[in-house]
Design a protein around this nucleic acid. Structure first.
Lengths: 351, 351
DNA sequence: CTGAAAGCGCTAACAG
DNA sequence: CTGTTAGCGCTTTCAG
């Protein structure tokens, strides 16, 4: 009996130890070897219909002997389902999206789906290319967590495919999963005030096409106003080049020596500020209290002293997966699904 | 003319504004609308053979009108290629693998491939499940960057598919891409010694099935011995729970008050040590110099003061993608491809 | 320059 | 309990 150990692939052919070329076995090969029809083999594989134990054994032996693996592509063409989901993120190299992707993939895997990943890199054209590919019946559904301007991507308007977006509006009929950005902004600001901060600076990355950061900023301003304090927001409108970041935060601290509180719209910015503060020998939290945003486990492990608003990534993934499955099953789902955030208070805040 | 804006999907059907049910258009629909044969439509799509401009225009108009997208699955069945690569990592939530996955996906995308991702989570059974799926002609090739024991995964032995592994031995006929772990271990230790450290501790995560860390450790021990110094290696044989880590590093520093140098086999451990040192008011680098390993950009941005051995992830991804493409094209590739590492010296080392 | 027919590997429908 | 037939949507002969 030929063994496939040490076999080599060569395009679509198998070369066994004796150098005999043989194609990848298909169902008819198994059927022939087991002395049954292809249909029977299919039935054994899918455990459908009534089958005699003898047939099952014969077929399974033949499959094992041939090292047979059903061709998923053929099955997909027949069933009109790929059991595959496409996920579009800016980049999995970013810990936030790495964590999100991990959790999405995990939950989809448990639900029987595979995951195609696309790093759109804040590049509208790349996002369009991915979409065009994925819309070609390659996937049963789509999770969109990128941050490009959807207006420039017409594919979203006539995408005939279940989609769920994360923290982003695409179009009215596409459901969205977010965490409660307004509540997060309020929580951060209120905590700083409750701990005695009066001169609180807020930084925000520019995401023109996303209400997300706007809501965090809006909440910050509302709370400041409610307390008779003056809101000061700085927009980060450059990338995240360390040198520019350093200059930026130094400028803020130069312009606001009175600052005793700081709320950054994401943890990376908050961490950058902590570094700047340390260099300037500003004591945290005594002189300056700091809250970031996101609370990704990896980041928290590296910088445990940073207080932050934690987004419920676990729940967000679960809800997104659930919504997409319902859409795939023909259910109509729309609207925004807002999940609660929580504060992780640590050493960058006073007791 | 029917427009698909606002259309809903419902299994495989399109429902247009007027509520009329219509299937996803296929090639025959386009052919009918354009008054040509399916073959001609195929030719237009693939720009194959001689075509009159008139025909091309007719067909393209029909495709646009119907919002036609070729069914990739059918095309894959026919061409026997999926143009898809499977990537298996422990988890993209880990910045190292997030970065690696990002770069692999980017390079594969540029080469015309899509990427299926699997987070095997150090779970042998999960890795096997992924493999079984991916081997079913779902992908044209596989990148394996997990760390499970390959002995427990027989699928690798008779996998009839192009594979490249990253930093891991799978079997003699499967090419491997690594960075030079031995050189990295040497470099780290030598730099510490050159800067005056005499009592250098080394920590290493337990990866029994991988020579990787063993090589780093081996190099450390060799260099120490060459310099007449006593090597001290601690194995981290628990997960990475912060509380255990804290205790662990405290214990090391308790047991070795004389320590003036520290080489951790990965940056997360090194960062944990930096935290412990700060809590114990041990000055870095004056009292204790520290070098980590990996040098992922994200980590470096968050903890710029950490010196580290930088793995050339960019190059590793490029080489892996190149090797896999060559394998896919029928070329036989084997052996270990070792890429050079470099030191990133920062504040955790003396000038 | 264009079309008809066969087939990629599988499964569903229908027959026995 | 098992087999025959047709077809998923595309591309590739081979004819014209």
């Amino acid at each position: 009996m030929a063994t496939f150990c040490g076999s080599r692939y060569n395009n679509n052919e198998l070369v066994n130890d004796k150098g005999i070329v043989m194609n990848q076995p298909k169902m008819t090969d198994v059927a022939k070897k087991a002395g049954v029809s292809p249909t029977t083999v299919s039935r054994v594989i899918n455990r459908r219909g009534y089958l005699s134990t003898k047939t099952i054994n014969k077929v399974e032996a033949a499959m094992r002997e041939l090292n047979y693996r059903p061709n998923m592509v053929a099955r997909q063409l027949q069933s009109q389902r790929t059991m595959t989901i496409g996920i579009l993120v800016p980049t999995v190299a970013n810990p936030f999206f790495g964590e999100l992707t991990y959790k999405l993939e995990r939950d989809f895997f448990n639900a029987g789906f595979k995951v195609l990943i696309g790093n759109a890199e804040n590049d509208v054209e790349k996002e369009r290319l991915y979409l065009q590919q994925l819309l070609a019946r390659q996937v049963d559904g789509l999770v969109i967590a990128t941050h490009n301007h959807q207006q420039q991507i017409p594919e979203y308007q006539n995408a005939n495919l279940p989609i769920v977006s994360i923290d982003r509006y695409l179009r009215a009929s596409i459901p969205n999963v977010s965490s409660d950005n307004y509540a997060g902004g309020r929580l951060a600001t209120e905590e700083l005030i409750a701990r005695g901060a009066k001169h609180i600076i807020h930084t925000d990355s520019v995401e023109r096409f996303n209400k997300r950061d706007y809501l965090r900023q809006q909440a910050y301003q509302d709370v400041m106003n409610e307390h008779g304090l003056t809101p000061v927001t700085y927009k980060i409108d450059f990338g995240s080049q360390p040198e520019l970041m350093r200059q930026f935060f130094n400028r803020i601290l130069d312009e606001h020596p009175e600052a005793d509180g700081f709320f950054a719209s994401n943890d990376m910015d908050a961490i950058q500020l902590l570094q700047t503060a340390r260099q300037r020998e500003i004591r945290v939290p005594e002189d300056l209290q700091v809250i970031g945003y996101d609370g990704v486990p990896t980041t928290t492990r590296i910088v445990p002293e940073l207080s932050t608003i934690v987004q419920p990534l676990d729940e967000m993934a679960k809800v997104a997966v659930d919504i997409l499955q319902r859409e795939i099953n023909g259910e109509r789902v729309t609207g925004s699904h807002n999940l609660p955030v929580r504060l992780r208070a640590s050493a960058s805040l006073k007791q």
